[in-house]
Amino acid sequence: MQRSLYLDPAKCTGCLQCEMACSYEKLGEFNPSRSLIKVFTFHEEGRFAPYTCTQCDDAWCLRACPVDAITINLSTAAKVVNEAKCVGCKVCTIACPFGTVNYVHETGKVGKCDLCDGDPACARACPTEAITFIDANATGYERMRAFAEKSISAANATAS
């Protein structure tokens, strides 16, 4: 089964365990500033939203790269930066409509989420299931389920 990261802002508490987990996985240190998943705080709305690469099928970053440094991992379908090839030209960072691939000045390369070879550290670390790694074909099911539930209460109301 192909899996996708599924992000549910309504469940996020803004604790940043995901950012620590991501940086530990990639760098062996706790460094939220280098995390490839970011949690944004919307103070006045009282909301938190985790955000990272959606792994587009036909990926802008991959297409834009002039040196073919971004390739597809065939088992996870993640678009992965090959650091040995990346020349740090940043064209992919301009091409990505979501801003989820970024230049990393410490390495002179770009960085983006690669789904940790099929076991994303962020999803493992999230204490509230705001980040899960689920069937890529079923990322809408949670919301479908909520609407389905409404439909049974409506049906119940009509029946009684």
Partner: peptide, 13 residues
């Protein structure tokens, strides 16, 4: 109440 919120690294929130 709008929501609960965590401090850094907190799994209680």
């Amino acid at each position: 109440l709008v929501t609960n919120a965590a401090c850094f690294g907190c799994t209680i929130a």
